[in-house]
Computed example of a mutant assay.
Amino acid sequence: MSVKPEPASALFAGPFALATLSAPHSDAFPALVTPDGRTVDLRAALGIEGLTVLGVLEDWQRVLPQLRTLAANPDIAGVPLADLTVHAPLAPRQIFQSGANYRQHVIDLHVAHRAPGDDRSEDERRAEAAEIMDQRAAKDQPYVFTGLPTSITGPYDDVVLPHWAQQPDWELELAVVIGRPAYRVPVETAAEYVAGYTIANDLTDRATVFRRDMAAIGTDWLRSKNAPGFTPLGPWIVPAGSITDPGDLRLTLQLNGETMQDESTKDMMFGIARLISYVSQSARLLPGDLLLTGSPAGNGMHWGRLLRDGDVMDAAITGLGTQRTRCVAETS
């Protein structure tokens, strides 16, 4: 079961976006979608049998002008979007996730995770965290780890909360979609490697983030973030050229209609170009890879309210559309 989005006058910014769609009892296909809900099956339009959105991104520089021409044609009319199922827009090979990248969010987490024996006031611990973050932004490097593609699910699919997850939490994030191979690229040219942007909700079980049995090792991102369906993605990939300033986008997440996260990407300590350049110094980025840029303040640990069966999350980012997902407790 999935929760469908509310109708919108414009689904996203710009003349078109990429999506993965399916009709009832049919295979999913790569699609061009217009802001008013018209669709084009790119397998037929580009004459490539078996094409996927990942395949489109692998040939992004050549295909992009064709997509612009398709979107500009007033006569395009495929199956109406309302008659199709919207899936995660792509299946990436690699996912890179930036942690502790929103200043206020990290300060809140620092305060929420009080160390045993730390009797200082909240104001004292908050001031300490603020100083650490300012020094980090000025002198240090981004903190990036990898995620599993099997954690991805669609933007309107139910999210199953594993029986072992004691503190499941939400983390709305701007996701960068890579459009060409990138290895050891400088910050100055890093933006040239971005194909577009989409929405990700990087769910996390806070209870398993830190290893209690092996504290010296630190965080356990495998267990805490990579359960099946823990990364609702999409609905669309909006081309980079349609987003005027990715460094100033509003992210909002509502839980059962109540706003929990409401922040701008201005609060990121390390911007998109810095993140891409940093990752590319160690790893080779490939077309279709995702780079999640971190989550702003307002997670469940901050509010003292974590996810449970029946919760509905509505997430939105300026120009990128909305996603809606319902939480369902796992049954044995």
Rank of each mutant, 00 (worst) to 15 (best):
W303D: 07
Y278F: 13
V53H: 00
L51C: 13
E263Y: 12
D245K: 02
L275M: 08
V177M: 03
G218M: 06
D134G: 13
V177I: 13
L249G: 09
S224G: 09
A71M: 05
M313E: 01
V328Q: 07
D309Q: 14
R136N: 10
T189L: 15
S332W: 13
A130T: 05
A165C: 10
V3N: 00
D262Y: 14
V3L: 14
D289V: 10
Y102C: 05
L286N: 14
A88E: 00
D248E: 06
R93W: 03
E58P: 07
A129F: 02
R125F: 07
E128V: 15
L90C: 08
S242T: 11
W170G: 00
Q261I: 07
G218I: 02
M269V: 07
V40L: 09
N226E: 14
P15K: 01
S295C: 14
L109C: 13
L54V: 01
T39H: 01
M268E: 09
G304N: 07
Q97P: 09
V159F: 00
R308I: 12
A115G: 11
D262F: 01
I217T: 06
E128G: 14
L42W: 01
A175H: 00
L70W: 08
P74E: 02
T52C: 07
A283K: 12
K139W: 05
T219M: 13
G37E: 09
L233E: 03
D83N: 14
P15I: 06
A297E: 01
T208H: 07
W303M: 02
L42T: 00
D220Y: 00
D169Y: 08
A227I: 09
A215Q: 09
V279D: 02
N101F: 13
D311H: 15
D41F: 04
N201L: 14
D202E: 15
E6V: 11
E58Q: 02
N299H: 05
Y197Q: 10
D157H: 08
E131M: 12
D213E: 15
G247D: 00
Y193P: 06
N256C: 09
A137P: 04
